[in-house]
């Protein structure tokens, strides 16, 4: 019988592992985002054909929101303007998608196919609504936590 090795977790290795996982998640998230845009804009697929991408793109931030609450951490930094940045990203994505569709269809004269734009816009609206809700909830939780641990407030 082999001697069982003691189970331990090296904090440095764990930190490095978590860092690699988080980088992997970000890379995969961007890849899925690109996949969604290519499917909708280049291949003109309907939203139903991109359901998996849609679920992942919406599901990951929802999971993040649930886990941050469970683990009692606030990931937002006070100095960042998260809502402004999300709005700018969605606007840039919308303008880029609109420009691409316009270019693909040869301008307004040949009749503009709006279905890819509607898919992108629907995603942006859902994503923005979730983002606004998440940021507002986190900000109120951050204030609550700050007040709970602030000795001067007592």
């Amino acid at each position: 019988m082999t001697k069982k090795q003691p189970q331990f977790k090296d904090e440095r290795v764990e930190q490095a592992r978590m860092k690699i996982y988080s980088e992997m998640l970000i890379l995969i998230y961007y890849a899925i985002c690109i996949s969604f845009c290519v499917k909708v804009l280049v291949f003109s697929m309907p939203l139903q054909a991109c359901l998996m991408e849609y679920v992942i793109l919406i599901g990951v931030p929802v999971y993040q929101a649930i886990r941050t609450r469970q683990l009692n951490v606030v990931l937002l930094r006070e100095e960042h303007n998260y809502l402004g940045r999300s709005l700018v990203v969605c606007l840039v994505l919308g303008i880029a998608a609109f420009s691409y569709v316009l270019w693909k269809n040869g301008g307004f004269s040949e009749g503009l196919s709006l279905s890819p734009l509607i898919s992108i816009a629907a995603f942006c609206v859902v994503f923005l609504l979730l983002r606004v809700g998440f940021v507002k909830l986190e900000q109120s939780r951050q204030k609550r936590l700050n007040a709970a641990f602030d000795e001067d407030e007592k």
């Binding site: 003691p6 331990f8 977790k9 090296d10 904090e11 440095r12 290795v13």
Partner: peptide, 10 residues
């Protein structure tokens, strides 16, 4: 202490 040798070295 339950870490790897590299950690102590570092």
């Amino acid at each position: 202490v339950g870490v790897t040798r590299q950690t102590i070295g570092m």
